[in-house]
């Protein structure tokens, strides 16, 4: 027993040493993000960063369901897109106040996540992937042809109201929304709930044998994932002030996977990083945009082959090397 207590003490100490480092990176990021409008007051740059913030929320929300819980979702755009459309349509056609439209948008994503989640609870592996893909495909078909009278198709729904006019205010609003969303998702992922979700991903039978109500937790993961994607979609609608069929495309669904693979699946922070980097990269090389699906697929394949843990695994690798180095030095 004494050995055990000593062991626990060491763990505690180790974590104590980690704390300052742990907060350093996020603090530096927030500091830089806060002063960017002053040091680089380019409307275009800020616009790209606002989009990046939106996609960070979107990617992190995908990660809680697929990265943490292991439920492969190939149609994540459906939550983002439905919310964006509901905001745009209610706000422009029904003339509901924007704040109410946003609530309805997020609520619609929540309801859709229940509707998709419930049948998916009994499905595993490829069946689940096909089902999520099909749901998003149906939504795409509705928006692009069957219900074009409502969605406006390629033309989209125009004239959505915005909370605040101007790029700089929207930049700060998106920054705050992104930080809060990522923080909440990260806290959930690092909590007891996150550990339970991980167990379900590793082995569903073993999780059940541990007494976990896997059905309940999988549904919870669907709800969180869909709702946060809905928040991202609602913000997108009020910022862009136009919602086109782009928000429910296969391309957008694939981007969630590409963002997450680049950053590191199952880490929340990784997908957030991936979304940031890829969004900026694509906007910087605008001529690449037409090849986006192709590039996403190349990224997915090459990361799966060469760096399945994403950028976050590089950090772990460095840390391990540091520790090993320290160990040798100490001896």
């Amino acid at each position: 027993m004494r050995g055990m207590r000593q062991g626990m003490g060491q763990v505690g100490q180790g974590m104590g040493l980690m704390q300052p480092k742990k907060f350093a990176v996020p603090l530096v990021f927030v500091a830089i993000a806060t002063i960017i409008p002053f040091i680089a007051p380019s409307v275009y740059l800020l616009h790209v960063l606002i989009l990046a913030h939106i996609f960070v929320i979107y990617a992190a929300s995908w990660d809680i369901l697929t990265g943490y819980t292991g439920q492969l979702n190939l149609g994540h755009a459906m939550f983002f897109g439905l919310s964006a459309y509901v905001v745009a349509i209610t706000n422009t056609m029904l003339k509901t106040p924007l704040f109410l439209s946003v609530l309805m948008g997020v609520a619609s994503a929540f309801i859709l996540s229940v509707a998709v989640g419930l049948p998916c609870l009994r499905l595993r592996g490829p069946y689940l992937a096909i089902t999520t893909f099909s749901f998003s495909w149906v939504l795409f078909l509705l928006a692009s042809s069957a219900m074009i009278w409502l969605s406006g198709g390629e033309e989209g729904v125009r004239g959505v109201k915005t909370f605040i006019v101007g790029t700089i205010p929207n930049y700060y609003l998106s920054l705050v929304l992104m930080l809060i969303s990522v923080y909440i998702l990260y806290r959930i992922a690092s909590s007891e709930t996150g550990l339970i979700l991980k167990a379900i991903k590793e082995d569903e039978d073993a999780a059940m044998a541990c007494g976990i109500d896997t059905t309940r937790y999988k549904l919870l993961a669907f709800l969180m994932s869909g709702t946060f994607a809905g928040i991202a979609g609602a913000f997108y609608a009020q910022y862009m002030r136009i919602v086109t069929v782009d928000v429910v495309t296969l391309e957008l669904s694939a981007s969630a996977i590409a963002f997450s693979l680049v950053g590191g699946i199952g880490t929340i922070i990784g997908p957030a990083m991936g979304a940031y980097i890829l969004t900026i990269l694509f906007e910087g090389f605008a001529w690449l945009a037409d090849y986006r699906v192709l590039i996403y697929n190349l990224i997915i394949v090459s990361f799966v082959l060469f760096l399945p843990g994403g950028l976050m695994s590089l950090r772990d690798l460095l840390r391990r090397r540091e520790e090993e180095g320290g160990g040798v030095g100490g001896a």
Partner: peptide, 9 residues
Amino acid sequence: QVTKPFKKL
């Protein structure tokens, strides 16, 4: 019988 550990944990 066929062990099912949470491998990555």
